[in-house]
């Protein structure tokens, strides 16, 4: 069975990096040079695609979408038939936390579906205040999702996210 996992989140939250880290194949990458200052040189404008073989029966397709809302037509391609969603939020980034609210609505995140939130860019500053803000976004929606501080470049962090998604499904 092929299962779809979407990686969503604001610009520069680490979606391309984590997919690169997890995928067992060379990822399909649609990064281009950014013409405006977004805090990094490259930005995704299409779909990132990676692939994981879990066992003989299960493969996971990893779909990363652009962070900018103007590319939401790409979100619509990915949205249908999702097994799980990983939402990345930049630490102490007001816009990124604000975007979480929009993404929860757009992707219709419900408590019963495997979904994990990862806070990235926590190298120099604690993620505690971001965790609090995320929890206060989730609470009114009746959502209690796992929230981790992660380094998108670290394979162990990336694997932790995937193991959590599988554990959530197995527990249901």
């Amino acid at each position: 069975m092929h299962k779809k996992v979407a990686f969503i989140g604001s610009v520069g939250s680490g979606k391309t990096t984590i997919i690169d880290n997890l995928s067992s194949i060379n990822t399909v990458n649609t990064d281009v040079e950014s013409s405006v200052d977004i805090g990094k040189e490259m930005t995704t404008v299409g779909i990132d695609y990676g692939h994981i073989v879990v066992d003989q029966e299960t493969t996971l397709g990893l779909y990363g979408v652009p962070g900018q809302r103007k590319f939401s037509f790409i979100w619509d391609f990915v949205k249908d038939g999702l097994w799980a969603v990983v939402i990345l939020v930049r630490n102490r980034d007001r816009e990124s936390i604000h975007e979480l609210d929009h993404l929860l609505d757009y992707f219709d995140i419900q408590q019963h579906m495997p979904c994990v939130i990862g806070i990235t860019h926590v190298d120099s500053e604690s993620g505690e205040s971001t965790i609090k803000k995320i929890k206060s976004t989730l609470q009114p929606r009746g959502l209690n999702l796992p929230v981790y501080t992660i380094d998108a470049r670290d394979k162990e962090c990336a694997n932790l996210i995937m193991r959590t998604l599988i554990a959530i499904e197995e527990s249901q």
């Binding site: 779909i47 103007k70 037509f73």
Partner: peptide, 21 residues
Amino acid sequence: DDKLSAVTSSLTALGSAAAKQ
């Protein structure tokens, strides 16, 4: 304009990825 720009950008990037890979 915004929609046209986003669509052309995405399709070209996907075309580039297909051409390369």
